[in-house]
């Protein structure tokens, strides 16, 4: 690991200011991705700005049909939150299935979304629930936020401050873990909302998280798991690696969607 200057600002404006004055700064949330990246020399920032003390980034609030989760909220906190559990139980379940206990105690929703790992779980919830990513300078709708593998529309120095999730009528998440890493080999978030059904798949697409329209169409007709058996999921643009080829991933998207729907309908 190369040397860098470490700072721990107390406010959002200080954090942005430090970033502006540095040659090549990176923010750090829980360090779950950042520290390994630094150790392997894949990034060599001059400055690391720890967001752990920035008061604006913490906390969970539910009001007016929206769950707002601060960017620095740890996965374990979301998983255990009664507010989240009551409003969007599928979201709490998703957070409780990320990594292991150590990772959940350090990793954050903001870090996960900024990193946009194509196999991460949260992107499926953000896209599936049509959430809004709030930053220090603007609000980004889910559809416009994700920009392919490990890429987002965040600008240099922009900080995610919170994510606003609209509360759906019902929702479910089903994850098929990669046998080695236990990231999502395929993870599907299904939400039934007043304006229709949204199905978002993570772990599977070559361009990261995406909506599975054939399944959305089927579920808008009939929000049940059984009829999904007859839906064929296109293989184009799905990833192939040693753990799963595109055909298997396409199949798993169907199976995980059916399971997510069953959960949303309260039948597990």
């Amino acid at each position: 690991m190369e040397d860098f200057t470490y700072s721990r600002p107390a406010s959002l404006s200080d954090a942005v200011a430090v970033h502006g004055n540095a040659d090549d700064a990176m923010y750090m949330a829980g360090g779950q991705t950042l520290i390994p990246v630094l150790k392997q020399g894949l990034a060599m920032p001059t400055d690391v700005i720890d967001l752990g003390a920035v008061w604006q980034l913490d906390g969970i609030a539910v009001s007016g049909g929206t769950v707002t989760i601060g960017a620095m909220t740890r996965h374990a906190v979301v998983a255990a939150s009664n507010d989240v559990g009551r409003a969007i139980p599928a979201l709490a379940t998703l957070a409780g299935g990320i990594g292991d206990a150590q990772v959940r105690n350090r990793g954050t929703i903001g870090g996960s979304l900024a990193n946009n790992d194509p196999s991460a779980d949260y992107p499926a919830a953000v896209l599936g629930l049509n959430a809004t990513v709030v930053t220090d300078r603007r609000e980004l709708a889910a559809g416009g936020y994700f920009d392919g593998m490990f890429a987002t529309s965040l600008e240099p120095g922009e900080i995610i401050t919170a994510v606003k999730f609209p509360v759906p009528e019902k929702a479910g998440y089903a994850k098929f873990p990669n046998p080695a890493s236990r990231y999502a080999l395929v993870g599907v978030f299904v939400a039934k909302t007043a304006s229709g059904v949204r199905v978002a798949a993570t772990g599977a697409g070559q361009d990261g998280v995406f909506r599975v329209t054939v399944l959305e169409d089927a579920l808008n007709d009939d929000f049940r798991a059984a009829p999904l058996r007859d839906v064929t999921i296109p293989e184009d643009n799905l990833m192939t690696d040693m753990h799963a080829d595109a055909a298997y991933r396409a199949h798993l998207i169907g199976v995980m969607t059916a399971r997510a729907v069953a959960r949303a309908n309260g039948r597990d």
């Binding site: 990669n178 046998p179 080695a180 890493s181 236990r182 990231y183 040693m242 753990h243």
Partner: peptide, 13 residues
């Protein structure tokens, strides 16, 4: 080597 880390080499949990 394709399985160069524990991300791809599956050890039993």
């Amino acid at each position: 080597l394709v399985t160069g880390s524990l991300m791809d080499y599956g050890l039993p949990h």
